[in-house]
Protein backbone atom coordinates (compact mmCIF):
# COMPACT_ATOMS: atom_id res chain seq x y z
CA UNK A 1 0.00 0.00 0.00
CA UNK A 2 1.68 3.18 -1.24
CA UNK A 3 1.27 5.94 1.36
CA UNK A 4 2.19 9.60 1.69
CA UNK A 5 2.80 10.88 5.23
CA UNK A 6 3.12 14.49 6.29
CA UNK A 7 3.95 16.11 9.62
CA UNK A 8 3.80 19.90 10.04
CA UNK A 9 3.54 20.16 13.83
CA UNK A 10 6.94 21.82 14.25
CA UNK A 11 9.03 24.30 12.32
CA UNK A 12 10.73 21.39 10.59
CA UNK A 13 8.30 19.81 8.14
CA UNK A 14 8.66 16.16 7.32
CA UNK A 15 7.25 14.19 4.39
CA UNK A 16 7.65 10.49 3.73
CA UNK A 17 6.60 8.13 0.99
CA UNK A 18 6.43 4.41 1.58
CA UNK A 19 4.51 1.37 2.64
CA UNK A 20 4.31 -0.71 5.77
CA UNK A 21 7.55 -2.52 4.91
CA UNK A 22 9.81 0.34 3.94
CA UNK A 23 10.26 4.05 3.48
CA UNK A 24 10.76 4.77 -0.22
CA UNK A 25 11.77 8.37 0.25
CA UNK A 26 11.55 11.27 2.68
CA UNK A 27 12.21 14.99 2.89
CA UNK A 28 12.64 17.26 5.90
CA UNK A 29 12.97 21.01 5.66
CA UNK A 30 12.98 24.10 7.82
CA UNK A 31 9.55 25.66 7.21
CA UNK A 32 9.64 28.32 9.93
CA UNK A 33 6.26 29.95 9.53
CA UNK A 34 5.97 29.22 5.80
CA UNK A 35 4.33 25.78 5.90
CA UNK A 36 1.71 26.84 3.34
CA UNK A 37 4.29 28.06 0.82
CA UNK A 38 6.84 25.27 1.30
CA UNK A 39 4.80 22.10 1.74
CA UNK A 40 3.59 21.44 -1.80
CA UNK A 41 6.83 22.10 -3.65
CA UNK A 42 8.36 19.47 -1.35
CA UNK A 43 5.52 17.00 -1.95
CA UNK A 44 5.93 17.40 -5.70
CA UNK A 45 9.70 17.03 -5.39
CA UNK A 46 9.38 13.83 -3.37
CA UNK A 47 6.83 12.26 -5.72
CA UNK A 48 8.77 13.48 -8.76
CA UNK A 49 12.03 12.04 -7.48
CA UNK A 50 10.38 8.60 -7.32
CA UNK A 51 8.51 9.25 -10.56
CA UNK A 52 5.18 8.66 -8.83
CA UNK A 53 1.93 10.25 -9.99
CA UNK A 54 -0.36 11.48 -7.19
CA UNK A 55 -3.09 9.19 -8.50
CA UNK A 56 -1.01 6.13 -7.59
CA UNK A 57 -1.20 6.97 -3.88
CA UNK A 58 -3.35 4.60 -1.84
CA UNK A 59 -3.17 6.06 1.65
CA UNK A 60 -2.58 9.43 3.34
CA UNK A 61 -1.22 9.78 6.86
CA UNK A 62 -0.84 13.02 8.78
CA UNK A 63 0.56 14.12 12.12
CA UNK A 64 -2.12 15.79 14.24
CA UNK A 65 0.20 17.46 16.70
CA UNK A 66 0.12 18.96 19.19
CA UNK A 67 2.25 21.79 17.84
CA UNK A 68 2.12 24.98 15.83
CA UNK A 69 -1.58 25.66 15.10
CA UNK A 70 -1.08 27.17 11.64
CA UNK A 71 1.42 24.52 10.63
CA UNK A 72 -0.95 21.75 11.72
CA UNK A 73 -3.85 23.30 9.84
CA UNK A 74 -1.83 23.52 6.63
CA UNK A 75 -0.74 19.87 6.90
CA UNK A 76 -4.14 18.55 7.89
CA UNK A 77 -6.11 20.66 5.37
CA UNK A 78 -3.71 19.43 2.67
CA UNK A 79 -4.07 15.78 3.66
CA UNK A 80 -7.85 15.93 4.11
CA UNK A 81 -8.21 17.46 0.63
CA UNK A 82 -5.82 14.89 -0.92
CA UNK A 83 -7.79 12.09 0.71
CA UNK A 84 -11.10 13.57 -0.43
CA UNK A 85 -10.07 14.22 -4.01
CA UNK A 86 -8.16 10.95 -4.51
CA UNK A 87 -10.82 8.93 -2.64
CA UNK A 88 -8.20 7.21 -0.47
CA UNK A 89 -8.19 6.68 3.31
CA UNK A 90 -6.74 9.24 5.71
CA UNK A 91 -5.23 8.46 9.06
CA UNK A 92 -4.32 11.05 11.67
CA UNK A 93 -1.83 10.16 14.38
CA UNK A 94 -0.02 11.88 17.22
CA UNK A 95 3.11 13.86 16.37
CA UNK A 96 4.35 13.23 19.90
CA UNK A 97 4.02 9.46 19.35
CA UNK A 98 5.94 9.78 16.07
CA UNK A 99 8.65 11.68 17.94
CA UNK A 100 8.77 9.02 20.66
CA UNK A 101 8.92 6.25 18.05
CA UNK A 102 11.92 7.99 16.49
CA UNK A 103 13.68 8.43 19.82
CA UNK A 104 12.99 4.77 20.71
CA UNK A 105 15.47 3.84 18.00
CA UNK A 106 18.29 5.45 19.99
CA UNK A 107 21.21 3.17 20.79
CA UNK A 108 21.74 2.42 24.46
CA UNK A 109 18.05 2.47 25.28
CA UNK A 110 17.79 -1.19 26.33
CA UNK A 111 17.73 -0.51 30.03
CA UNK A 112 15.51 2.53 29.68
CA UNK A 113 12.08 1.77 28.34
CA UNK A 114 10.70 5.24 29.18
CA UNK A 115 10.67 8.16 26.76
CA UNK A 116 9.43 11.71 26.88
CA UNK A 117 8.46 13.41 23.61
CA UNK A 118 8.40 17.21 23.87
CA UNK A 119 7.24 19.77 21.29
CA UNK A 120 7.73 23.51 21.70
CA UNK A 121 4.32 25.05 22.50
CA UNK A 122 5.58 28.69 22.49
CA UNK A 123 4.43 31.16 25.14
CA UNK A 124 6.99 29.61 27.50
CA UNK A 125 5.37 26.17 27.44
CA UNK A 126 6.05 22.68 26.14
CA UNK A 127 3.67 19.95 24.93
CA UNK A 128 4.91 16.62 26.26
CA UNK A 129 3.88 13.03 26.80
CA UNK A 130 5.58 10.04 28.40
CA UNK A 131 5.81 6.78 26.41
CA UNK A 132 6.94 3.24 27.12
CA UNK A 133 8.92 1.39 24.53
CA UNK A 134 8.40 -2.30 23.93
CA UNK A 135 9.79 -4.11 20.95
CA UNK A 136 9.55 -1.60 18.09
CA UNK A 137 6.45 0.17 19.39
CA UNK A 138 5.71 2.98 21.84
CA UNK A 139 2.57 3.36 23.96
CA UNK A 140 1.55 6.49 25.87
CA UNK A 141 1.77 6.32 29.66
CA UNK A 142 0.51 9.81 30.45
CA UNK A 143 -1.85 12.49 29.26
CA UNK A 144 -0.49 15.26 27.01
CA UNK A 145 1.00 17.96 29.23
CA UNK A 146 1.11 21.62 28.31
CA UNK A 147 3.35 23.15 30.95
CA UNK A 148 6.25 25.49 31.42
CA UNK A 149 9.47 23.44 31.30
CA UNK A 150 10.29 23.71 35.01
CA UNK A 151 6.86 22.39 36.03
CA UNK A 152 7.04 19.73 33.34
CA UNK A 153 10.29 18.31 34.72
CA UNK A 154 8.73 18.13 38.18
CA UNK A 155 5.53 16.46 36.93
CA UNK A 156 7.23 13.84 34.74
CA UNK A 157 9.82 13.04 37.39
CA UNK A 158 6.98 12.20 39.78
CA UNK A 159 4.87 10.40 37.18
CA UNK A 160 7.60 8.12 35.84
CA UNK A 161 9.01 5.11 37.61
CA UNK A 162 12.57 5.67 36.39
CA UNK A 163 14.81 7.78 34.20
CA UNK A 164 13.62 8.60 30.70
CA UNK A 165 15.11 9.56 27.37
CA UNK A 166 13.80 12.93 26.12
CA UNK A 167 13.58 14.22 22.55
CA UNK A 168 11.97 17.00 20.57
CA UNK A 169 12.25 20.70 19.82
CA UNK A 170 10.60 21.30 23.21
CA UNK A 171 13.80 19.94 24.78
CA UNK A 172 16.04 22.00 22.49
CA UNK A 173 14.11 25.19 23.34
CA UNK A 174 15.03 24.88 27.04
CA UNK A 175 18.42 23.13 27.17
CA UNK A 176 19.41 24.58 30.55
CA UNK A 177 16.38 22.90 32.14
CA UNK A 178 16.20 19.54 30.35
CA UNK A 179 19.95 18.78 30.19
CA UNK A 180 20.33 19.33 33.94
CA UNK A 181 17.28 17.37 35.16
CA UNK A 182 18.51 14.18 36.91
CA UNK A 183 15.59 11.96 35.80
CA UNK A 184 15.90 13.04 32.16
CA UNK A 185 18.46 11.86 29.68
CA UNK A 186 17.98 14.25 26.77
CA UNK A 187 19.35 13.20 23.39
CA UNK A 188 22.41 15.26 22.37
CA UNK A 189 21.45 18.63 20.79
CA UNK A 190 22.68 17.68 17.30
CA UNK A 191 20.74 14.35 17.27
CA UNK A 192 18.35 14.14 14.28
CA UNK A 193 15.84 12.29 16.46
CA UNK A 194 14.75 15.61 17.97
CA UNK A 195 12.80 16.09 14.72
CA UNK A 196 9.42 14.51 14.07
CA UNK A 197 9.81 12.03 11.20
CA UNK A 198 6.67 11.65 9.07
CA UNK A 199 7.79 8.09 8.26
CA UNK A 200 6.55 7.10 11.73
CA UNK A 201 3.01 7.96 10.60
CA UNK A 202 3.09 5.47 7.71
CA UNK A 203 0.43 2.75 8.11
CA UNK A 204 1.34 -0.49 9.79
CA UNK A 205 1.45 -3.79 7.94
CA UNK A 206 -2.01 -5.22 7.48
CA UNK A 207 -3.72 -1.84 7.86
CA UNK A 208 -7.17 -2.34 6.31
CA UNK A 209 -8.46 1.21 6.57
CA UNK A 210 -10.97 2.10 3.82
CA UNK A 211 -11.87 5.52 2.45
CA UNK A 212 -14.74 7.08 4.35
CA UNK A 213 -15.82 10.73 4.06
CA UNK A 214 -16.96 10.62 7.71
CA UNK A 215 -13.57 9.44 9.00
CA UNK A 216 -11.87 12.18 7.02
CA UNK A 217 -13.89 14.90 8.78
CA UNK A 218 -12.68 13.64 12.14
CA UNK A 219 -9.00 14.12 11.41
CA UNK A 220 -8.31 17.41 13.19
CA UNK A 221 -5.41 18.98 15.07
CA UNK A 222 -4.77 18.04 18.69
CA UNK A 223 -4.87 21.64 19.91
CA UNK A 224 -4.62 20.91 23.68
CA UNK A 225 -5.07 24.65 24.28
CA UNK A 226 -8.48 26.30 24.00
CA UNK A 227 -8.73 29.30 21.66
CA UNK A 228 -7.77 32.28 23.73
CA UNK A 229 -10.47 34.87 23.00
CA UNK A 230 -9.40 37.30 25.69
CA UNK A 231 -5.88 37.63 24.41
CA UNK A 232 -6.91 37.56 20.77
CA UNK A 233 -7.55 40.80 18.99
CA UNK A 234 -11.04 40.72 17.58
CA UNK A 235 -11.37 41.10 13.85
CA UNK A 236 -10.58 44.52 12.49
CA UNK A 237 -9.71 44.28 8.87
CA UNK A 238 -8.47 47.79 8.44
CA UNK A 239 -7.43 49.44 5.24
CA UNK A 240 -7.52 46.36 3.10
CA UNK A 241 -5.74 48.26 0.35
CA UNK A 242 -2.40 48.42 2.04
Amino acid sequence: MLALAIDTATEICSIALGNSENVIGSISFEAGRSHLEMLFPAVEQLLGRQNIDARRLEFIAVGTGPGNFSGLRVGIATCRALSQSLGIPLQGSSSLAALAAGAAGSPGLQGQPLLMAAINARRGQVFAQIYRKHNRKVTPLSEIYCLDPGDLVEVVTKAASGPMVAAGDGVLAYPEIFYSAPAIQALPPQDKRHQVQAAHHLPEAGCKKKYSPQDLMEVLPEYVREPDADKTVLLRKRQPWQ
Binding site: L36, L39, F40, V43, E44, A54, R55, S70, R73, V74, A77, T78, C79, R80, A81, L82, Q84, S85, L86
Partner: peptide, 15 residues
Protein backbone atom coordinates in the same frame (compact mmCIF):
# COMPACT_ATOMS: atom_id res chain seq x y z
CA UNK B 1 -7.16 31.96 4.53
CA UNK B 2 -4.52 29.26 4.75
CA UNK B 3 -7.10 26.53 5.32
CA UNK B 4 -8.75 27.46 2.01
CA UNK B 5 -5.48 27.83 0.09
CA UNK B 6 -4.05 24.52 1.37
CA UNK B 7 -7.29 22.76 0.48
CA UNK B 8 -7.52 24.28 -3.02
CA UNK B 9 -3.90 23.46 -3.76
CA UNK B 10 -4.30 19.82 -2.73
CA UNK B 11 -7.47 19.39 -4.81
CA UNK B 12 -5.79 21.02 -7.84
CA UNK B 13 -2.75 18.77 -7.37
CA UNK B 14 -4.81 15.60 -7.03
CA UNK B 15 -7.08 16.42 -9.98
Amino acid sequence: LLVGVATAKAIAFAC
